[in-house]
């Protein structure tokens, strides 16, 4: 029983880590008033770049850094299009997804002689045990003997909370997402804040992508990200655009997936077909939303064009 619980927790963490990171990315962007439906694409480019660089340098950390840079560059396109050129934010996000999916797979084919995936990332992130804490029964092994990126993800939840709610930068960022005109009048540059927010979002989503290709998995292919960016958007809304909300939503979804998977190992498939069992996380999410969570209010200025001087 104890080992079952540990296993459930391990699987939950495995599944939630990339979601937490990408959803936090979306959080920064959307709190500043810029919809980011391009999380999927930002994760894809992060996953691709970090895998290729990790393969060539032999270091997953350098790979991660490169992934972050790539995520920021792609996010820059989103920022230029939406903030500078006032493009519709959803349109631009959709384009980012197309661009990343095309570019990453195209480059894999160009780099690796037509292959559908990168070679194996030999030097990937390995579990890092934290002394003493790892010996706590039940939660010690899953929580304190895991991938460094999982620690990074958890720390980033706290950092995001602190930055957004306890620093002048965060307050301005949120203000820009709620009342851009008033904030501009108060002397904050809406354009600058939104640029920074969108770039942060690219960096965080890219770390989420890197998790998939260099920590949980060890290669990049067209199906590495496979819809997780959209689940991250769901987690962002489910978590009501708040850091700890996002953590809770991602953990809830991860736990539901874990339940549906370990359910098979317990032999539940004797009674329920595996296709039906696989629906579980999605059904549970809807039920949770309808039953307990309810209304979600997006940042007020989200998706609206902002032109200086107009209102």
């Amino acid at each position: 029983m104890l080992s079952t619980m540990t296993n459930l927790l391990e699987t939950t963490i495995l599944y939630s880590t990339p979601l937490i990171l990408a959803a936090l990315g979306g959080l920064f962007s959307e709190r500043s008033g810029v919809i980011n439906i391009g999380l999927e694409g930002l994760m894809t480019i992060g996953a691709f770049t970090s895998a290729v660089v990790a393969i060539n340098t032999g270091s997953p950390w350098i790979g991660l850094l490169a992934g972050i840079v790539a995520g920021i560059l792609l996010a820059l396109i989103h920022a230029v299009a939406t903030v500078t050129f006032n493009a519709d934010q959803t349109v631009s996000g959709v384009a980012i997804n197309f661009l990343a999916a095309g570019l990453a797979v195209y480059l894999v084919k160009a780099l690796y002689d037509g292959a559908g995936q990168t070679p194996v990332v030999e030097s990937k992130f390995t579990d890092l045990a934290i002394p003493v804490l790892k010996d706590i029964p039940l939660i010690g092994d899953p929580l304190f003997n895991t991938s460094p990126i999982t620690y990074i993800a958890l720390i980033l939840v706290f950092v995001s909370y602190f930055v957004l709610y306890r620093t002048p930068f965060g307050m301005r960022l949120r203000a820009v997402g709620e009342h851009p005109h008033a904030t501009e009048t108060a002397g904050v540059s809406v354009v600058k804040m939104r640029y920074v927010a969108v770039l942060i979002s690219g960096a965080l989503a890219a770390i989420g992508g890197a998790t998939l290709s260099t920590s949980i998995g060890s290669e990049f292919s067209a199906t590495t990200v496979a819809g997780q960016g959209f689940i991250a958007i769901a987690a962002l809304i489910f978590g009501k655009w708040k850091p700890f909300g996002v953590l809770g939503a991602a953990a809830f979804f991860g736990f539901s997936v874990a339940l549906s998977l370990t359910g098979q190992v317990w032999g539940l498939t004797e009674y329920v077909p595996s296709e039906i069992l696989t629906m579980l996380p999605y059904v549970l999410t809807i039920l949770a939303l309808a039953g307990f969570v309810g209304r979600a209010n997006a940042p007020a200025a989200i998706g609206k064009l902002y032109e200086r001087g107009s209102r």
Partner: peptide
């Protein structure tokens, strides 16, 4: 046929079991 994370989770559960 594509979700490697799911594959890893299932393998983990099988080995742990």
């Amino acid at each position: 046929f594509s979700d490697a994370t799911k594959g890893r989770s299932l393998a983990k559960s099988l080995y742990d079991g």
